[in-house]
């Protein structure tokens, strides 16, 4: 049991579901931005799990961790989107199947 009578198992289940959904999006979508979105979702799923444990264990450290994750996600989004903008200018597409310059 965790805060407000919510069982930790439920929190983890929800988190796991979100994570798998995000995973599916990241693997099956072809649009780079959609993949990026799916990754953000996976990150949030992890956040949820962390907060669930934090509440269950009466620990504030979990909130700190999530706080940092969100801040880093912001930095990551800024840089990642800038890369996409630059990439799109260069290749006129954000379909990852067509962006495969980094190969032998």
């Amino acid at each position: 049991m965790t805060a407000n009578g919510i069982p930790i198992g439920d929190v983890l289940l929800a988190s796991g579901a979100l994570f798998v959904i995000g995973l599916a999006g990241a693997l099956l979508r072809r649009n780079a931005i959609s993949i990026f979105l799916a990754i953000e979702l996976m990150m949030n799923a992890a956040n949820l799990a962390v907060l669930g444990y934090a509440a269950a264990l009466h620990s504030l450290e979990g909130q700190i961790v999530v706080f940092f994750v969100i801040a880093i996600a912001a930095a990551e989004a800024a840089v990642g989107l800038a890369i996409f903008v630059a990439l799109f200018r260069h290749t006129e597409t954000i379909d990852v199947n067509q962006i495969n310059l980094l190969k032998w």
């Binding site: 929190v11 907060l51 909130q63 912001a74």
Partner: peptide
Amino acid sequence: TYVLLAAPLIAAVQVIVY
């Protein structure tokens, strides 16, 4: 759900930042 997990700050940050 974050609010319910006793993390209102993270909830606010979640909305503001994300």
